[in-house]
């Protein structure tokens, strides 16, 4: 058996390209003064004291018109209506499921906001209430959309579209939610032979390619067909690519994932977990994205 040893002084010295030179970032840490000027609105990550605006988290100042926010490097997911999320059922309650979505409080999925077999207009009876555990039980993974945000910040989800629902065979990966870029579409059938769902809450689901028509059943029919080893390898490769991107703080969306996959092809899947190689792939991706300005 051979053991792979890395010495820290033999670490690859990558030229760290400083992208911030062109677009300087305004970085603050808690207690820093953002501005003394009046007339600004206080956003997330800031607080006002004696007409001075201070930062309350360590991160980057973002300003939209008069609204100033500070975005932390990483934090729990704060939901917005319309976000695609991936969650895990943790409790079956009365007329609702409780779902863990990596936000501050647990989210709820009401029985009235799921698609039951039989279409949109089906009445929900007591019978359905008793059958809830047959649809989704504790430990099941679902993809869903944020329907509304309650006053305390907890989320109400819905799966009233055939693209959402229970997830079958695949791999789940967790990355910081701040790395996921909001896009029009979060469901991607990648040309490399797998499908990914990039949840806004930082959960990424990678699974064998979903056929457009036949597989979108809302998750009530789970496909337990054996996944062949080439597909599994693609899934594993994508997993490692996404991990590499997350570890090196690269934004994650379909383009970066595909770029990283492309750069990773010269390595074996298992090599991608080596920190040096992961860093190289992340840097190459970052450079490509930066040059093309996607």
């Amino acid at each position: 058996m051979s053991i792979d040893i890395r010495l820290s002084n033999e670490k690859l010295q990558h030229e760290s390209t400083d992208f911030s030179a062109e677009r300087p970032l305004h970085l603050v840490i808690p207690g820093d003064i953002i501005t003394r000027e009046a007339g600004y609105m206080r956003g997330h990550g800031t607080y006002m004291e004696n007409d001075v605006l201070y930062a309350s988290v360590a991160g980057c100042v973002e300003k939209v018109n008069k609204l100033i926010c500070v975005k932390p490097l990483k934090s729990r997911y704060t939901g917005e209506v319309g976000d695609v999320v991936i969650g895990r059922i943790i409790e079956v309650g009365q007329k609702r499921w409780r779902v863990e979505t990596h936000s501050k409080l647990d989210s709820v999925l009401h029985l009235s906001s799921v698609n039951l077999p039989g279409g949109e207009l089906r009445k929900r009876s007591e019978e359905d209430e008793r059958m809830m555990r047959n649809y989704l039980q504790e430990g099941d993974l679902i993809s869903a959309e944020v329907q509304s945000v309650y006053a305390d910040g907890s989320l109400s989800l819905h799966t009233r579209s055939l693209k959402y629902g229970k997830l079958g065979q695949g791999s789940l990966l967790q990355v910081p939610a701040s790395l996921v870029r909001r896009r029009k579409n979060h469901f991607h059938n990648l040309p490399c032979g797998a499908s990914v769902i990039i949840g806004n809450n930082g959960y990424i689901w990678i699974c064998p390619t979903i056929n457009e028509q036949s597989d979108k059943t809302g998750g009530f029919v789970t496909n337990y067909e054996r996944v062949n080893s080439s597909t599994r390898e693609v899934i594993a490769r994508l997993m490692n690519c996404a991990t590499a991107l997350a570890e090196n703080m690269v934004v994650i969306y379909d383009t970066t994932l595909l770029c990283a996959h492309e750069f990773s092809l010269k390595y074996e899947v298992k090599e991608l977990i080596k920190p040096d190689i992961a860093k190289e792939i992340a840097l190459l991706t970052k450079q490509k994205i930066h040059n093309n300005d996607y």
Partner: peptide, 30 residues
């Protein structure tokens, strides 16, 4: 501050890529 600097490069990419926007959006520091 050092930790932030080395881990914040993704902020340039999460923001919409309109050149020069960052400069304008940087609030004045009194």
């Amino acid at each position: 501050g050092e930790h932030l600097k080395t881990h914040s490069s993704h902020f340039t990419l999460t923001r919409p890529a309109t050149p020069g926007r960052a400069e304008r959006s940087r609030p004045a520091i009194a």
